[in-house]
């Protein structure tokens, strides 16, 4: 568990994700806004009409380093942001379950929304993470891919 005073909490975990502890952690006395984003497993994809689960693979140390870099980039761009939590699931995630959580707290809502959007958009392009789609009769790597780029290029 990360201390309440820390501005950053990043995690890569095979355990189910829950927003509640992240919101509790991010809520600070000087912050009037806590914005959350939850990415969830959808029942279809570009390639498959029926998707039952996603399965994520990563290199945990490299993924954690990149998540930390995203949080640092948030602090440079939105210095008022007081807390950034970025948690990503690995392994098999069932339909409807969260795959990724972004929580941003700041004194006012505008920078919390902007920073939250920046976090999820940047995460998708900079974090070493690969997903397989499970569907009736098999599984395959997602075709919704992008070449990995450095955080500072985003």
């Amino acid at each position: 568990m990360t201390a309440e005073s820390s501005p950053t909490w990043v995690a890569v975990t095979a355990e189910p994700l829950s927003l509640d502890p992240l919101i509790a952690w991010a809520t600070r006395s000087g912050c009037g806004a806590v914005v959350t984003f939850s990415g969830t497993v959808r029942d279809h994809s570009a390639d498959h009409d029926e998707v039952s689960a996603l399965e994520y693979e990563t290199s945990e140390p490299h993924a954690l380093a990149r998540l930390g870099e995203i949080a640092e980039a948030v602090r440079r761009r939105w210095p008022d942001v007081a807390a950034v939590a970025l948690h990503h699931r690995v392994g098999r995630v069932e339909l409807g379950e969260p795959t990724v959580l972004v929580v941003v707290a700041s004194p006012h809502r505008a920078e919390a929304f902007e920073a939250g959007r920046f976090c999820i958009d940047t995460l998708k392009r900079t974090v070493p993470m690969w997903k397989r789609e499970h569907f009736p009769g098999g599984s395959a790597w997602s075709s919704a891919t992008e070449p990995i780029v450095p955080v500072e290029s985003t």
């Binding site: 990503h88 990724v100 998708k124 690969w130 992008e146 070449p147 990995i148």
Partner: peptide
């Protein structure tokens, strides 16, 4: 030396 194919996180 790590080989990283195009990514699909999130």
């Amino acid at each position: 030396v790590a080989v990283l194919p195009p990514v699909s996180g999130g």
